[in-house]
Nucleic acid binder design. Structure first.
Length: 569
RNA sequence: CGGGGUGUAGCGCAGCUGGUAGCGCGCAUGGUUUGGGACCAUGAGGUCGGCGGUUCAAAUCCGCCCACCCCGACCA
């Protein structure tokens, strides 16, 4: 491709809209262009990258036994009501009406449709296992799109769905996908971390996310440097230390004038935070929920909602707390009635806690569970934190930010039961299909690659997904044979099967080198009067500082070797 | 949805106490240049986000709305 003809211009200035590295560089390189919040066009260079990623994914999906299909983006809204996910997804689901006022949704994911598809095409265990996938645009009306391609409302995603006869079969499909995913990320030159995750509105188990470590990542990963424990902070668990506070004593009232928060109460009574229990109030689908947790811990809302299964969960306002007849600052689970009480299992981690007294400026000493109050549910609903003990090896947990590029998990029979998708097993009995679901965001993957592979000059594409392999860069000078040699070289290299971006513009060397660095092709081939004097051209890898002179004859052979080396890394 | 910010040429920005819009980059033409964003000359390009109000007069003051960005909430 001749750069002089390429659609899309590079920009010197950093666009004011962009903050993350990948966003800035994609815009400056002329690879994407924004149309609306979280909606982008892909220009030729960006689109080539996406197609390369797509081909790698397709290759690995096919190798793992997947069959490619294409399902509708436009879906009847009733389907979402049938699965109940119109509620779970809420406003994230884009909806519209057709001319007959029938409500439709733009597909944010395809469990419903694929289950419907399988229902009519799978009758027997002989049809299983079945792996169906597609690479297609998805629509999600995000509350807040951000970071360029990191979180968008219209994006390319690969989604594969596995269908098996039983759990054992699902385990095999799941394992295959896990390996295929690892292969994909390896081939894209992207180191990933496999972490335990929550499965969200879809529901399911063995939920794992493939995370790319990046400062700009939206997810916090809690991991253990000592063993291989790693989890999304939404899901992460840590050891809750036992608090030794003596044998249970009788409950005792104590005046705590002016002390409301745990901070104040602990300071007033001169006790550590972990000798207290705090009450936190949430509104779950309009109802107030009373949450009890040890004073030094924080409630993890994802874990909390996994217990409550509410479609809308938020903290209660102070007004709502007061209206419910509770004493803000001194509310206590002891003696409380008429509320759903959820306790973190840390209430069992010690004895003689200080809790609210349900009277202003009053607290209770020596509160013990379950002697003094009962919870409807006792479960782990606390956030694991950096510095906590690892549940695996007892080491100290650390954290980092990550971008979720892939998510795999087991759905089981949730959807096959809702949509009555069953098959006849060996014994002639009808059974629901056992499903798994595996998503991978292409646009986001592209952004993540840049987050991990760039410098102050620009992008450094891993060779397998670079828009072009070579940046052919002649430095024209009258009288020298640069043009003649480069034109010939360009033709030769293309004939030899290389993907060449040929900077045939009449620009100064500075402009060309800077654009070459910005655009990030893996190998730059410079032809100039200086190199021609030595009968050579210059090779420079984008990822390295040094360049080398290579004799004119045998360039193609030399490049073949370089490309092979690149690919084997 | 709450908080903060920004909308002026393709991009980055200036434009005070109102007087009818400017700079740099880019773009076009001509010329001189050519190993890290060169230089000279000439030129094109703007409903100042939108609507309404105040005023003789609004990019500028006031009101409403919209869009986009950041933080939070939320997040398949």
């Amino acid at each position: 491709m001749r750069l002089s003809k390429l659609f899309g211009k590079t920009q010197r200035e950093i666009p004011a809209e962009a903050e993350t590295a990948s966003h800035q560089l994609l815009l400056r390189a002329g690879m994407i262009q924004q149309l609306a919040a979280g909606v982008y066009s892909y220009l030729p260079l960006g689109w080539r990258v996406l197609k390369k990623i797509e081909n790698i994914i397709r290759d690995e999906m096919d190798k793992a036994g997947g069959q490619e299909v294409n399902m509708p983006v436009l879906q009847p809204f009733e389907m979402w009501q049938q699965s109940g996910r119109d509620q779970a997804l809420g406003k994230v689901l884009f909806t519209l009406s057709d001319r007959r006022e029938r409500k439709l949704a733009l597909g944010p994911t395809h469990e419903e449709v694929v289950t419907e598809l399988a229902k009519y095409n799978v009758q027997s265990y002989r049809d299983l296992p079945l792996l169906l996938y597609q690479i297609q645009v998805k629509f999600r009306d995000e509350p807040r799109p951000r970071g360029g391609l990191i979180r968008v409302r219209e994006f390319l995603m690969k989604d594969l769905y596995s269908f098996d006869a039983d759990e054992a079969g699902l385990d095999i499909s799941y394992q295959k996908m896990r390996e295929a995913y690892q292969n994909i990320f390896d081939r894209c030159g992207l180191p990933v971390m496999l972490v335990e995750a929550d499965s969200g509105a879809i529901g399911g188990k063995d939920s794992r996310e493939f995370m790319v470590v990046a400062e700009s990542g939206e997810d916090e990963i809690i991991y253990c440097p000592g063993c291989n424990y790693a989890a999304n902070a939404e899901k992460a668990v840590s050891v809750k230390e036992k608090i030794d506070n003596g044998k249970p004593l009788p409950v005792e009232e104590v005046a705590t004038p002016g002390a409301g928060s745990i901070e104040e109460v602990a300071a007033f009574l001169k006790i550590p935070h972990h000798h207290t229990l705090k009450a936190v109030f949430y509104i779950a689908d309009g109802k107030l929920v009373f949450v009890v947790i040890r004073g030094d811990l924080e409630v993890n809302e994802v874990k909390l909602n996994n217990q409550l299964k509410a479609s809308e969960l938020r903290m209660a306002t102070e007004a709502e707390v007061i209206k419910a007849g509770l004493v803000a600052g001194a509310a206590s689970p002891v003696g409380i009635k008429g509320f759903k009480v959820i306790a973190d299992d840390s209430v069992n981690s010690g004895t003689n806690f200080v809790a609210g007294g349900n009277k202003p400026d009053t607290h209770l000493k020596n509160v013990n569970y379950p002697r003094d109050f009962k919870a409807d549910i006792v479960a782990d609903i606390a956030s694991a934190r950096v510095g906590d003990k690892c549940p695996g090896c007892g080491g100290i947990l650390a954290s980092t930010q990550g971008i979720e590029v892939g998510h795999i998990f087991k759905l089981g029979t949730t959807y096959s039961q809702k949509f009555d998708a069953s098959f006849i097993d060996k014994k002639g009995e009808s059974r629901p299909l056992v499903m798994g679901c595996y998503g991978l965001g292409l646009s986001r993957l592209m952004a993540a690659v840049i987050e991990q592979n760039h410098d102050e000059k620009g992008i450094i594409w891993p060779l397998p997904i670079a828009p072009y392999q070579l940046y052919l860069c002649p430095l024209y000078k009258e009288g020298a044979k640069v043009e003649e040699v480069t034109e010939k070289l360009y033709a030769e290299l293309e004939a030899a099967g290389f993907e060449v971006l040929f900077d045939d513009r009449q620009e100064s060397p500075g402009v060309k080198f800077n654009d070459a660095d910005l655009l990030g092709m893996p190998i730059r081939v410079t032809v100039s009067p200086r190199t021609l004097e030595k009968g050579s051209v210059e090779f420079k890898k984008r990822s390295e500082k040094e360049s080398e002179l290579v004799p004119l004859d045998g360039i193609a052979a030399r490049l073949k070797k370089m490309v092979t080396e690149f690919n084997s890394v």
